[in-house]
Every structure is written in structure tokens, then in C-alpha cells.
Write a protein that binds this DNA or RNA. Structure first.
Lengths: 116, 116, 116, 116
DNA sequence: GTGGTCTAGACCACA
DNA sequence: GTGGTCTAGACCACT
């Protein structure tokens, strides 16, 4: 169990500090729900850290659900406190699964979707 | 003569098929942007798979930015193809917040880049 | 599909991630010196990206001298300078987990931290 | 027990702790670039966790590009520090591997964080 | 209620 | 042998 000891003895990670500061800016209202954070390169500049560090900071916030990221769109503040304009009433999804229903190792003859 | 390889697989994994099927439901309009997917336990039932597999499916969709997840709230369809009505801070596209309605509450302030 | 793990993490340039992944394949021995990379269209398919992105990836590798290109012949792996033969014999990591004794199924009573 | 205390605000998930500990072993030189980590089943034993948890740990490291995985071969230490701004005593940083960019060191004007 | 973590296995695909 | 998938649950944290 002592590996845990080693870990919490030194948690001065810059990216964590940075993440916490950003979180503070959010909680303070400086950054509001559904608005975009500054770009990661911008953040890196602002905080005087490398891009990698900035990315780990936003990654941490993402893990904490403080923000969410849409690729090539940006990183956005989660509507943490209340009332997301989200439709929690679930979509009318009456039927769903595969026509077949064993789900084991059967071939699962599902049509290949033209995805990317 | 080995120039293809390994990470690709392209096998019929259940979670992958499931994810693709859900993506189809989204593209077909069955599941609309900013509405919640059925809960993961529900999805597991619908598709006749274990919870873990259902979670892998939503995880894959999350990686593909087809959906995004808010802890304890649900998993929501991303406003996929182009132009999410998101406030892209620095990009000057100031208008439109999150979809459904953005009339009454937060003014959706443009991100104040507290720069220098 | 695991390259997607590396690719997503955040909003970095896809072509860069892709280039790095290809570089890993080279370093790992998957792609060997003086052999051709898959064609750019092939690469674009494999990674699920546009042709332009694939071309930027190989361009980046070309700039780094990891590969070189012969017009209408293909893109080939450079005989890299610091070839790192992967050490498959596992690191001398004799002890790992809990320095204490048993390390079997210690209950791992991890206490949730109060958080902030 | 109270031996676990963190100023850190994130939670104490086992897989996360485990990943961080492995990362520490890497940074400490116990596990070196291009060498294989112990197999996941082995890691699970060493740390006294289930296989799934061990896999989550390596997955996290993979996302952070601390390691990379070759299917049926193993999981290998990346030759690039996850966070170049981290100075853990002496990380023994003569890099020999490939030209990944981790060159630039920012001034590191760390912002004042209210806590800690 | 939701998603997230974790267990303790079994089996598959690749090498 | 390795990592990867999948099961069928239980429990935790948060809303």
C-alpha cells in the first residue's frame, strides 16, 4: 500500500495547479457554462507553460467533467451548477437493439455502416 | 510486405457494432442533437449486452465526438456535422449558445480572455 | 482502433498525432527501414482521415527525416539514426506493487479524499 | 485511515493511482523507454487489483502517451516525457530516441493558486 | 436516477 | 505468451 504514500507526498504538478485555477475562473463566473475556454495554445501562453502542460490541464478538467471538448471546435464549460438546456427526458427510443438478441459470439450480422 | 497492420482489426466487435448502430439512429434522426441517449443500463438491455459492453460503445462514440457525457446527467448527442451553436469564444462568432432555447437565462457571455 | 486513443485525448492536430503513431509503428518494427509506407490514400483510410491530413502526416515525417519520398514510387522509411530495438524481454522490474509483503489481494482500502 | 491526504482535488480512483505509480516508476528510471511494462495480468497481481482495473491504468497511460501498446506484444514505455515541465529530482533526461518535440521549455511562470 | 469504478472470472485474436 | 473483448454482477459519487 505504500505506493500510495509515495504518490500523495508530491503532488505539485503544474498542470493540476493550472487546472484548479481554471476551475476557479469558472466557478468565479469568469468563464461561464457553454462558453469556450481559450484555445489550449492560448492557455499555454497565458500560464506560461508548455502546450503539453496546458493540454494535461484541460484533460484533467475534462475528466472531472468541468469541461467537455468537441474536436476542432473547442473546450467548453460544463453547465455545472444547474439547468443545462439539455433534454433529459430521453429520446423516444422505443426499440433499439439488434434484431437478433443473443449477443454472445454469434456472427452478429449487422450491416456495416459507412462510418469513418 | 507487411505494410498493413494490426491496430486496424475491423472485426465484428459487439461494442463497435453497437456504437455504429447508435450512430445510425442519430443520423437517421431517431436520436437528436442535445437529447439524451437511453441510459447505459437501458442500452445494455436494449442491445442484450452487458453493461460494460454498452459503456464501451458509448465510450467509442464519445471518442468520436458523436456524443458527450455529463456525469450523473446522461450521455447526449453532439450537434454533429458542422456548426454547433457553440460560443466559440475568441473566434468572434458570438451568438447562439446551446441549442434548444437560449432565451431567458445566461446571456452566454463571450469568453473574456483575461489576457494581457 | 487503439490509435484513436492516442488521437483523441484533446484538440491537437490530427496529422501530428497520426505522424507520431506512424513513427511509433516504425520504431516498433512494424514498419521497417527502406520499406514503403502504405500509400497515402491507404493511410487515410486506415486512420479514417482525409487525404489531406494523411499527406500532412507524411510531410511531417519527411521533415523529420523519418521517411523519404520518391515521386510516384512511394514513401519509405529512413534508416533511422537512433534505432531503439524494443526490449521485449521486459524491464528488470523485479518488484512492483506493494513493497510490503503479500501484495496478493490486499483489500486496497483506498479512502476517498474529501476533494475540493 | 488518514494516511491518504491530498491537496489534490481529484478523486482517489485505484486505476488512477496505479497509473500514476507506474508513471513514477518510469520517471524514476525503473522502467525505461522502449522496454515493456509487466504484462497486464502481472500488473494486476502486483498491485492486487482486478485485470480490468489494471487495464484501465495502462489505458490511461496510453492516453497520456506515457506508453504505447502493441497488440499481443506488450505495452512499452514511450520515449517522451508526458510532462516536460516536471522535474522529479533527476529524471535522467538524456533522450536518445526519436525526435518527438519536447524541446521547448516555457518560463514556467506558474500562476498563483489560492490553495496549497 | 445517472455515469463511473471494480471484481473475478472466461474466451478470442494475434504472434 | 500478449493485449482485447465480454459477462454479470456490486458498489460509489453525484444530481
Amino acid at each position: 500500500m505504500s505506493w500510495i504514500h509515495q504518490l500523495d507526498s508530491s503532488l505539485d504538478y503544474v498542470y493540476k495547479k493550472m487546472a484548479e485555477h481554471i476551475e476557479l475562473r469558472i466557478k468565479s463566473g469568469d468563464l461561464k457554462p457553454y462558453t469556450a475556454l481559450p484555445a489550449e495554445r492560448r492557455l499555454a501562453e497565458e500560464y506560461g507553460v508548455s502546450l503539453g502542460t496546458a493540454r494535461r490541464a484541460t484533460e484533467l478538467l475534462r475528466e472531472r467533467q468541468v469541461v467537455f471538448t468537441l474536436r476542432s471546435k473547442g473546450t467548453f464549460v460544463t453547465n455545472s451548477p444547474a439547468d443545462p438546456n439539455l433534454n433529459l427526458g430521453e429520446t423516444d427510443s422505443r426499440q433499439g437493439g439488434f434484431p437478433t438478441d443473443q449477443a454472445q459470439h454469434a456472427p452478429l450480422a449487422v450491416v456495416p455502416t459507412p462510418d469513418a
